[in-house]
């Protein structure tokens, strides 16, 4: 008898959980889509995409003359007329989308006094933060996929060459990496929105982190590498060059920006054969050919797990923080 009632109770709770989660998710989606800031980032991303496809098409003939394979992938990686490629554009601008969608997720609720009202409803508190993350993630996925398809469509119409199955698969994997990458920034921004009282503070903090990873991380990495493994004279250079390079690389890979760029360059360029330093002896007997998709994936699989782990790690921190936070005190 008791078993049945607890079973019923569990079912009831599950149903309530589903109800509240879907209500929150729908509300967040509606909020985002009707908000002005979503229109702004949509315009920004669309403009970026169109600019980069224009650059790619102008630089295409040069790119094809040097290597005429995998032309479809070149739409995403070619730059021209000093306009960066879609790949590097998204690596730089993508985080911005995540930041905009997440920077005031929790603290605006707190400041509006709606968090009070929300948590006094019969819902689990984590539904709030999970619903917000899922809604942001869905929008990011939609945006990334539509931009990727837009590039493919325009490129296909302009160059008139059908993509091969492998090229399509590589593009799909590339978009998947991009989604995870931007979701990392969404999680990061949400973490700041849990920690900071004011949305201005959390916005500034997340933008600062973005700039740090995109610009200053590589400088910092080379400074540290040079300090540990100096290459300032011939002897040091002979002894330390490899260690210096590796140290530099490893520090850089802490940055999700570097991790992402390295991974997607490998995916979209089958000619990239290694992501680490390769010695002359390792190259002896190597065939000069493209890597197959499976082999490319093998190279950057750790990058994907790393990115997912970073995203989940950051989200977990904000989750725990949010669950333990006092509701009062606005």
């Amino acid at each position: 008898m008791e078993n049945i009632s607890s079973e019923q109770n569990k079912q009831r709770n599950d149903r309530a959980r589903y109800h509240s989660m879907s209500a929150l998710y729908r509300k967040e989606m509606a909020d985002h889509i009707t908000s002005r800031r979503f229109v702004i980032i949509m315009l920004l991303v669309t403009a970026t995409t169109i600019a980069s496809i224009y650059g790619a098409l102008t630089g295409m003939s040069d790119a094809i003359s040097s290597d005429s394979n995998f032309i479809f992938l070149k739409l995403y990686t070619t730059s021209g007329n000093s306009i960066p490629s879609f790949l590097s554009f998204i690596a730089l601008i993508g985080p911005f989308v995540g930041l905009i969608l997440g920077f005031d997720a929790i603290n605006s609720e707190r400041n509006n006094g709606t968090l009070n009202r929300l948590v006094s409803q019969p819902i689990y508190r984590d539904s709030v933060i999970i619903g917000k993350f899922l809604a942001g993630g869905t929008l990011i996925s939609l945006m990334v996929i539509s931009m990727g398809v837009l590039i493919g469509a325009i490129g296909f119409l302009s160059i008139g060459i059908l993509p091969s199955v492998e090229e399509l698969a590589r593009v799909v994997i590339y978009l998947l990496y991009t989604i995870v990458y931007i979701c990392f920034w969404l999680a990061m921004a949400m973490l700041f929105s849990v920690i900071c009282r004011h949305s201005a503070t959390s916005a500034l903090a997340s933008i600062a982190l973005w700039i740090f990873f995109a610009v200053f991380m590589s400088l910092l990495a080379s400074i540290i590498a040079n300090a540990i493994y100096p290459v300032n004279n011939q002897y040091n250079a002979a002894v330390n060059t490899l260690s210096n390079y590796n140290c530099n690389l490893y520090i850089n890979r802490i940055s999700p920006y570097y991790l992402y760029t390295e991974a997607v360059s490998t995916i979209l360029n089958p000619s990239v054969r290694a992501v680490n330093a390769v010695t002359m002896s390792q190259l002896v007997g190597a065939l000069s050919s493209y890597l197959s998709l499976g082999q490319s994936m093998l190279l950057v699989w750790p990058h994907l797990t790393g990115l997912i782990a970073l995203t989940l790690g950051v989200f977990t921190i904000s989750y725990v923080k949010f669950m333990r936070q006092e509701i009062r005190g606005n």
């Binding site: 509006n112 006094g113 968090l115 009202r117």
Partner: peptide
């Protein structure tokens, strides 16, 4: 919370 309604001192709505 299913049977209790709470009206906080500065009730907030989504503006």
């Amino acid at each position: 919370k299913r049977i209790t309604g709470y009206l906080p001192d500065n009730v907030g709505f989504y503006p």
